[in-house]
Simulated scan of single mutants.
Amino acid sequence: MKKIKILLLLLTVSVAGFYSCTDNDPVDNEIVTTKSISLRTTLNEIKKANNINGKNDLSMQDQAFCFNFVFPLTLSYNDGTVITVASYEGLLEILTAETETLFLVGIAFPFQVQQEGAITTIDNEEEFYALIQECGFSTINDDVLQFSCFQLVYPISVINANGSTIEVQTQGEFESLLINGEVVEIVFPISVIQANETIVVNDLYELFDLYDECDGNTTSCICTTDVNPVCVQTANGTVMYSNACLAECDGYTAADFVSCDPVLTTNFGNGLGSCFTMNYPVQIQYQGALVTVNNDGELLQYYFPNQSSIPAFVYPVTANFNSPGGLIQVTMADQVTFESFIINNCN
């Protein structure tokens, strides 16, 4: 377990209540922090850049990022403790001391950042999230949409941008929610399945750690781009990989392979150009950017069957299906609808 360091010179700590000790009216000086997915995303990027994993090299500075925090910053831990961080070096020390039971979750708005020599004030979570997207940071949205190291066990609950808690039943439904860039907060705990093992994830800190482990594990797993599909049976259904190497990178072996027949008859790549055609141009979300695609060849470059059943379209999209009753043109508002049309018309 990591030991928490007492940072007497780099930060000040105030516990629940968070009142100034020098004011007769403490309510006027209450420090308010907001739980922030964007903060946790940024801290995760800083930890990866500085190799903070227990025994750390703290030599890299935040100049490597597209913005620098303007200190001091007021942050809060998951246990409610509020701290004031005086410098970037102090922030690195705090991140080094984080554990699975004590970690940063909140920040006091507004705060300032320096970007290309200009000082910008960040007033709320929406502005903070826009900043990290501009910087290309790997958000939970990106990980869920583009990575298949493990599978979420559904249903899960999320809190949407309106503050309402909604239940998400499938991966497709979750992707449809995230693909529009909406910031959602996952309600923990959740369960995931990795290499046939069910793992309970208790908070965002643990989820980021799990994704970081996946990133580390995939760096040495290099596969060819040949298409020779194999399938594995998971708790969420049959998953098809383009080839055996990709399946093995996710922890499966030949003993886990099952027949792909039910999947191949409804597979997007097989159906494109035969069961249905796309109305181009369309846009694809790829690694945080929007890519315009003009033909089938270009589209298939952004189709990763081991990650998602269909490409990460920006909806709505229109396709022409060869149905039993003749050619029909359908405009689809989300991935779930697209999947259902493939299943119902491409058998």
Rank of each mutant, 00 (worst) to 15 (best):
E206N: 04
N29W: 07
L131I: 07
G117F: 11
L210K: 13
N160L: 06
G17L: 11
S164G: 02
I222K: 09
V232E: 04
A108S: 15
A289F: 12
S308P: 06
Y88C: 10
Q114Y: 00
L9S: 14
F174H: 06
S14D: 12
V258M: 05
S138T: 11
N320F: 01
T234E: 07
V201G: 03
D212L: 05
A247Q: 05
T22I: 10
E298F: 07
V263F: 01
N50F: 04
N180G: 14
N345L: 10
E126A: 10
V258L: 12
E100I: 06
P26Y: 07
C21G: 15
S87P: 08
Q133C: 00
D261P: 00
T96I: 01
V230H: 02
E45I: 00
Q151T: 03
N29G: 11
E206V: 07
A97V: 06
D212P: 03
E127D: 13
V192I: 15
P229F: 11
I140K: 00
N236W: 00
D334Q: 04
Y315D: 11
N160E: 02
T74M: 07
V201I: 15
E127F: 02
I156D: 00
T225Y: 13
V201D: 08
C21W: 05
S191P: 01
Q329I: 03
V85P: 09
A254N: 14
V153E: 11
E45N: 07
C149M: 09
F321S: 06
N322D: 13
F321H: 08
E125R: 06
G216P: 00
I199W: 04
M1Y: 14
N236C: 02
V232L: 09
F109W: 09
L102Q: 14
N51W: 09
N228K: 14
G216W: 05
Y302T: 03
S164T: 09
T337M: 11
T12M: 10
S308H: 05
E197W: 00
V184D: 06
N344A: 11
T337L: 02
F103W: 06
S308E: 04
P229H: 04
Q61W: 05
K48Q: 15
A255N: 14
I193W: 03
Q133W: 01
I132E: 08
Y302R: 01
F174I: 03
F71I: 00
S220V: 10
E98K: 06
C231R: 01
T266Q: 12
V113G: 10
I107S: 04
Y77C: 05
L131G: 06
S20R: 07
I31V: 13
M240G: 03
T219S: 10
A244D: 14
Q112E: 15
G80A: 08
N320E: 15
V27K: 11
T121F: 05
S76I: 04
L9F: 10
L92M: 01
L73M: 12
Y88T: 06
S340H: 10
S38C: 14
G117I: 11
Q233N: 15
V192D: 00
L272D: 02
T34W: 04
T165M: 10
L145C: 02
D226E: 15
L207D: 08
T292L: 06
P311I: 00
T234M: 03
Y129A: 07
F71M: 01
P281C: 14
Y303N: 08
T74N: 10
T34Q: 11
D143K: 12
M278P: 02
T22P: 01
L10I: 05
K5L: 13
